[in-house]
């Protein structure tokens, strides 16, 4: 055997990288939220206990932003998961050309959320965007999309799902292909119809995959930042002021790192709570 010393030596660069740039920052965000920076210098900070949390809880902007975040996720998570399952089922059929279709459907999963934002903000431009001119073809009047508080959040749901649905579909497709063919043969012999097969065989056998997709989808959508940053600056009338964007504004526009780290810590705690509920809920079923 080689000495353990060599193992540590080979591991050191990668593990140090993870500790410095992943683990330490994670711990830092929790502890930094207990400090306040003094006005006299960058480095001088003093312990304030839970004062930052008290400030955040007393701030109506935080509650408004939390409300928007919860509403957004309450809508987008079921939409994305349901569409991803539907798309995976559709592309798991063996019709002619399905392989080519699969490749094309993967394209949005490979580009960044920033690309999805620019492409769709051009598409959704109220005056010269393609979507309004297509709507005009079927007699629907111009829509304001991102520029009005009643449609902005839905527009972001559309944009994020255009990229997200194909991405989550990849996991579900992998899960579907792991289901042994014999299950379906047995169901065919028993004369089960398509819906029975879906709810009695496919979805129950997909439960592990679904749980994974729901959890990771929740995490990524609760932390969504780019669309409000690039498209709406949280508006109109704060209707798209997602928490992650409020965190960014606190840190880099108001220069209030204490508020930023406090809110990100609260966001993580909220996220852990919701993920725990999802685990219980999806485990308990069946």
């Amino acid at each position: 055997m080689y000495a353990p010393f060599i193992a540590y030596l080979f591991l050191a660069p990668a593990i140090l990288g993870l500790l410095i740039f992943k683990v330490y920052p994670l711990l830092l965000s929790a502890t930094e939220s207990l400090y306040q920076v003094s006005f006299f210098g960058q480095q001088a900070k003093y312990f304030v206990g839970l004062e930052n949390y008290r400030d955040v809880f007393a701030d109506p902007t935080f509650w408004q932003s939390l409300k928007v975040t919860l509403k957004f996720n309450f809508l987008i998570i079921p939409i994305q998961v349901a569409l991803a399952v539907a798309l995976a089922l559709l592309l798991n059929k063996k019709f002619k050309g399905v392989r080519v279709f699969r490749s094309i459907y993967l394209l949005p999963a490979g580009v960044s959320i920033a690309i999805a934002c620019t492409l769709w903000s051009l598409m959704l431009n109220p005056n010269s965007g393609l979507l309004n001119s297509l709507l005009a073809l079927v007699g629907i009047p111009r829509q304001p999309f991102l520029t009005t508080s009643s449609q902005a959040l839905w527009s972001i749901i559309l944009i994020a799902s255009w990229k997200g649905v194909p991405y989550w579909m990849i996991f579900i497709m992998a899960g579907l292909q792991g289901i042994p063919e014999s299950n379906y043969e047995a169901a065919a012999i028993d004369g089960a119809n398509a819906l029975q097969v879906l709810f009695k065989i496919t979805l129950p056998l997909l439960k592990r995959t679904l749980l994974f997709v729901v959890v990771v989808n929740t995490v990524s959508n609760f932390l969504l930042f780019v669309p409000p940053y690039m498209l709406t600056r949280g508006g109109p009338e704060s209707s798209t002021n997602l928490l992650m964007y409020e965190v960014f504004k606190s840190g880099f526009i108001y220069n209030d790192m204490a508020r930023a780290t406090t809110m990100i810590t609260l966001l993580v705690i909220l996220l852990l709570g919701i993920v725990a509920i999802e685990f219980r809920w999806l485990r308990a079923e069946h």
Binding site: K22, P25, L26, S29, S220, L223, L267
Partner: peptide
Amino acid sequence: IPSEVIAIPLYMV
């Protein structure tokens, strides 16, 4: 660990 969660403390690092 999502990169968004650690972006602000990573900035301090």
